[in-house]
Design a binder for these strands. Structure first.
Length: 211
DNA sequence: TCACCTGCACCGCTTCTAGT
DNA sequence: ACTAGAAGCGGTGCAGGTGA
């Protein structure tokens, strides 16, 4: 399946720019994030800081290195400490490595149906604004069938073994090993028919983190 | 149509560097 | 050590693009 290119904005092969540019970009992102959080426009921030909107655009896009005076004006206008602009640059990035069979068994909503949920990793509040929960789900003969999961976000299912008929809204999709189902999770969804057991699949749920 | 944002051309100040 | 020209950088203003 080919998806029209304009939809895909991320480049998985993107290479980091030189470090000095990263600092400017990190500062710019921080400024924009604080501005958006306070729901003010570039023009309003321009009036509050005495900087032109063009200059603010350059700063937010990492196209210039603002002076300390400028950063102080921004910090005052946004009511944040000066150091807040550097956190995105200084913070380390987290990674979670879960070895085979070492995931955390969780009591998610589906557990009551006999479904085995293993959480493969978790990163809580983070700089991307998105929470991602990867689960390994195993359905055995004891698993009940009820297509009533419904929650915020986007979910991706990748079948590892076995086969199920998976309902999403009004549609039922026959999933076999190697199949993928990618869907909006606020519609009722879940395994409706256990065709070949045991069935195992990866379920990756993504949703916006609370601010 | 309009608000918002971006990018480009340009200005002025500061710093660097070479010549004396 | 002093000076003058060059280069770099922070900043402004405005035209044009974009999306609601």
């Amino acid at each position: 399946m080919r998806v029209p290119d304009p939809i895909l904005k991320q480049n998985p092969h993107n290479v980091q720019p030189p470090r000095e540019k990263v600092l400017e970009v990190a500062i710019g992102r921080a400024v924009r994030a604080f501005r958006k959080r306070q729901a003010i426009t570039v023009a309003e921030l321009s009036a509050a800081t005495g900087l032109s909107s063009g200059m603010l655009s350059k700063i937010e896009n990492g196209n210039t290195s603002p002076s300390l005076t400028t950063l102080q004006a921004l910090a005052n206008a946004l009511s944040v400490p000066l150091s807040a602009f550097f956190r995105g640059f200084e913070d380390s990035r987290r990674a979670v490595h879960t070895r085979a069979g070492a995931g955390v068994e969780t009591a998610r909503a589906g557990t009551r149906a006999g479904h085995e949920y293993t959480l493969l990793g978790h990163i809580g509040a983070n700089t991307s604004g998105v929470i991602v929960e990867p689960y390994l789900i195993t359905l055995t003969s004891t698993s009940d069938i009820f297509p009533t999961f419904q929650h915020d976000g986007i979910e991706t299912i990748y079948m590892l073994e076995g086969a199920v008929d998976y309902r999403h809204g009004d549609e039922v999709y026959p999933l076999r090993a190697g199949d993928t189902l990618h869907f909006e999770a606020d519609a009722p969804h879940g395994p409706e028919g256990l065709v070949e057991l045991p069935a195992r699949y990866l379920s990756i749920i993504s949703y916006a983190q609370e601010t």
